[in-house]
Design a protein around this nucleic acid. Sequence first.
DNA 1: TCGATGTGTTTGCATGTACAAATAAATGAT
DNA 2: ATCATTTATTTGTACATGCAAACACATCGA
Lengths: 150, 150
Amino acid sequence: MAAEKLKVLTDTIAGECIAVRMRMLNRVVTNIYDDALRPLGLKVSQMNILVAAGTMGTARPAEICARMHLDASTLSRNVERMKTRGWLEVIAVDDGRAQPFRLTTEGRKLLLQADPAWRKAQKRARALLGDGIVEQLGQAVGRLGETIQK
Amino acid sequence: MAAEKLKVLTDTIAGECIAVRMRMLNRVVTNIYDDALRPLGLKVSQMNILVAAGTMGTARPAEICARMHLDASTLSRNVERMKTRGWLEVIAVDDGRAQPFRLTTEGRKLLLQADPAWRKAQKRARALLGDGIVEQLGQAVGRLGETIQK
DNA sequence: TCGATGTGTTTGCATGTACAAATAAATGAT
DNA sequence: ATCATTTATTTGTACATGCAAACACATCGA
């Protein structure tokens, strides 16, 4: 009977699906960091991009997308919002297609201010999830590399 | 000098931040499942809700939110979309506040059709991430329970 | 040089996500 | 019984995300 088959299927997916777990933990973790960063008017999604820009000096969108496994259109709009806020600025270059950007002084100041909040969130997340998964997240990201899936 | 401090900070966050890793893996994993489910016109976010409804029989929004650590407003709109598509239907009950729902015949049929795609995605995700993290995701979700963070 | 192809980015569109506030209804205290 | 409080859900708003398509420019081959 079909009803039986459905019950088995839904129980299996509910009990084993990697996406279910990953997405749930992602919501919880994102909320922890967003809570901590809220007083600064900053969200963790944006902080990540500021950090990437910070490590790269001058950041090429395509390179950030590859590193972060982030769609180009998503990055484009996030960067736009942060330019509006004065945290990022574009750099003039010869290649007319490119739109490289870097942190502004404001952006640098914001990151320095965000440090304590980040540490607090990091500590909370680690305590909640456990050291094991933190270790494994690093490994999995390593496996990923900058491979393009499609 | 402030520039030095910033470099240390951004390198530290880029190298250690749990949210950076979790969010990156979440994007990759979500894309794997969405790719597999696309021919069915279904996204993994919606599949998860259908599955929850399938395991529960009659699903109370508040209970799904607690189980999935999902904001009530988010669920409300996702359910709305799936009602429109004919995959879910609300059930009449005495408590006038409640809006419990369940799978329709269409919804059940869709889940059964989605099974092979889900298996394919599950296999790809496991191969990409490694068994270690799959194990740890389960553990971390277990730790979480249905605790409300705030 | 010029047209085809490729690369980098942005736009149009739909969905997912959460916070704050609104709404609606049940519950509890007096 | 009535009013205050609590509980369940929806709405307003803003941002995040990705696909498909458009756009802009570079590059390569004839």
